[in-house]
Design a protein around this nucleic acid. Sequence first.
DNA 1: CTGTTAGCGCTTTCAG
DNA 2: CTGAAAGCGCTAACAG
Lengths: 337, 337
Amino acid sequence: MATIKDVAKLAAVSVSTASSSLNGKKHVKPETRKRVEAAAKQLNYQKNGSASDLKKIKTNTLVLILDDLSGPFFSELIRGVQDVALSNGYDLITCSSLGGKNMTPKRFLLEKRSDGVVILAHNLDDETIARSARNGFPVVVLDRNLPHTHTLHIQVDNERGGYDAANYLLNLGHRAIAYISGPVVSYDNQERYKGFLKALSENGLTLPGKWQICGEFTQQGGYHATNMLLSQRPLPSAVFYANDEMAIGGLQAFAESGIKVPEDISIIGYDDILLSQYTTPPLTTIHQPKYQMGSLAAHLILQVLNGEELEQQSYTLQTQLIERESCRRVERDLANS
Amino acid sequence: MATIKDVAKLAAVSVSTASSSLNGKKHVKPETRKRVEAAAKQLNYQKNGSASDLKKIKTNTLVLILDDLSGPFFSELIRGVQDVALSNGYDLITCSSLGGKNMTPKRFLLEKRSDGVVILAHNLDDETIARSARNGFPVVVLDRNLPHTHTLHIQVDNERGGYDAANYLLNLGHRAIAYISGPVVSYDNQERYKGFLKALSENGLTLPGKWQICGEFTQQGGYHATNMLLSQRPLPSAVFYANDEMAIGGLQAFAESGIKVPEDISIIGYDDILLSQYTTPPLTTIHQPKYQMGSLAAHLILQVLNGEELEQQSYTLQTQLIERESCRRVERDLANS
DNA sequence: CTGTTAGCGCTTTCAG
DNA sequence: CTGAAAGCGCTAACAG
């Protein structure tokens, strides 16, 4: 691989002149520049990014760390981050927090390979994040609160979301409601659960253990959890899924058992992923402002990078109930525990 | 920011000993190692990734470049690449080819920031790709053929896919078939179109201009294109969408116009994205082996990186027709041009 | 087992 | 306008 030295030699200039030329500094004589450029082309020269990063202060790169790159939830979030990153001249790369101990995200959090990072990855440990948030290195965390650190937080009022979902069901007359949750370790999930329970208890209801099932935040997880629910009669008249993907898995499980949604059972999801409006029936769900989370995150990072002072360290966005067709009104309890 | 020098000084060892310690070399006296580790922790030392990359030959990173990180098509592809990358000890990062001239992807293609790359991004120019594929730097391209370069190719037999889709419709008795295509610049799209036309002409049919509409490869694109179709009666009895997202947009447009699928019109998509089985009606489509494309791509890269000889430079995968419920048999033409 | 030495490839003063 | 020189932070021989 040709280095800048080779280019300089071929162009018969010094390395520093070659560098100036290649980086578009204006003080180079056009003639010289031409020679350098010709030499570079001839040698198929490409700069070594690591070497140049080493000298420079900034990498001009923002990183987005996600649990899993392939989840549908993330599409809009990514777009939000990307839109503002690109329009401000920053590169965006994404990586997943899957993988071993010395995982990819750490390289970008700790090894000065980026100028700022946005995190939505619950399998990334607090300590790593806390350690990464050095001064002048903005880290925005979307799925947890890390007090006493330099991190910035954007949160969705998930407790409220869970509360709203439960109340919606309650107002439709449901009294026997199951909760199919995501992994208990998920902070977001806990908040939704809390809000859900709160609404129940305000109505003098409790959640029986058999109607409280947890699984992975995936279609499969929802499918299996729903089958567990189905194996323990009586059935509730409504079920709240901790996210849309799980609800979709549930839809499948119900269909296979000949149980009709919403005629026989009402279901409500969470997130409002794109998919949820195309299911049969379209899914009533709690909308999360995903694009907004992403764009706000990127904005905050850019502000820090530009040396501006942030007024708050923590931001909260609201959810919104999206009424579609997966829930129906019931006059009295069709089932009870 | 503390450097390794600071750590060495604090631990009262030489820089090289500090380095050896920190990198887990086994020849360091446990006592010394402890001192170094303590010093590193005390200073909150983190290595500078660029500096260490500069010395090392490998970055241990694979990059996946996509048109747009947020498309549903990519989920499975990413998973395929990721699974094999991670299980072989490589980090995977993804980036989008959106953005300006000096876009992110170039940094990873050209600036020696990664060990290999997988590309599925039709807005990335051939020249950049060709220039990047230097010796020992494997580049797998999934959406085009770049002869006379060092690049590797994985392709899906899209012509066959288009041909199969058309024949399926033809066998159901359809004679008046429209084609709603993606951007004409898309190589994949062209292939599908070719196959589609071939089937038509084998049956003595042609595609009237008004039934040949193109738009973006998105839901919106499909929606608008379908509305254009709707404004020019008579309608065809079937339409082939160049991808599932467009078909879903079409579903929406038809629903808004009170046209029933498949009763009034049959539609077939392409890709078999996850979403397509949850639409109403579930979408008949051509399955693309997305996971397989990803995992094969990563495998090829790893083989090259391990110095193995590849037998072929080009690989072709087959599509498969997935029959769901968006097409119906017609006895005779309901509409004709 | 540890330290000395020599760069990796590039950018950047600072003189000329 | 150009070149010589210094060094970013780290790793890797090689001696001791």
